[in-house]
């Protein structure tokens, strides 16, 4: 396979930085109020009461997930441990997307909003109330971008990443 011309690299680099900035933004919105985010995590009920060596896993998630988004986003943007960061962000995005899709089936939400895709609720994603189809689409786009922009190896002959 022949190497691609060097001119193609600018848009992916820019896109990768933009993708990283999106994750930093999401993380920043959550980390501003850790307790509020903890409540959001709790409302999913997936980690309710799970305790490991005296640490409430919900609390650890409330502290760790926003930092993963911020640090992972910065890694993506600056090319430091880019693939490792993209892999973690992809895994967590996939889990969150499944959780949001499941949460939207909550009977309390369903009772007042019949159309699944148009349901509106606070997913605890740091951006307030979301519409199900918009949030799922956004997450799938982000996951889709993580693979070509974050996980792929540098093309042959390309300059080394910043770190």
């Amino acid at each position: 396979m022949s190497a691609r011309p060097t001119g193609w690299r600018l848009p992916p680099t820019f896109l990768r930085a933009a993708l990283g900035a999106v994750f930093v933004y999401y993380g920043w919105m959550k980390i501003r109020d850790p307790y509020s985010y903890l409540k959001s995590v709790h409302e999913y009920g997936l980690l309710d009461g799970v305790n490991l060596a005296g640490v409430q896993i919900e609390n650890l998630a409330a502290a760790g997930v926003p930092m993963l988004e911020i640090f992972g986003g910065l890694c993506l943007a600056f090319g430091l441990w880019r693939r490792g960061a993209a892999a973690w962000l992809g895994i967590f995005m996939a889990l969150f997307t499944a959780a949001v899709a499941w949460k939207a089936t909550d009977p309390e939400i369903a009772a007042s909003q019949a159309n699944y895709l148009l349901r509106e609720f606070d997913c605890g994603c740091g951006t307030g109330v979301v519409v199900v189809w918009e949030k799922l689409t956004m997450n799938l786009v982000l996951i889709g971008l993580l693979f070509p922009l974050g996980l792929r190896r540098e093309p042959p002959g390309a300059p080394a990443p910043a770190a």
């Binding site: 850790p34 760790g64 890694c75 441990w81 960061a85 973690w88």
Partner: peptide, 30 residues
């Protein structure tokens, strides 16, 4: 790389949580 990112994230998260005025107590069942 995933290990490095996980370790760095965990350390940063614990440090920021400890310094954040609204940080959560990790062992408390809220």
């Amino acid at each position: 790389q995933m290990l490095a990112v996980a370790a760095a994230t965990l350390l940063l998260a614990l440090a920021v949580n400890a310094l954040h005025p609204g940080g959560v107590e990790l062992g408390r069942d809220y």
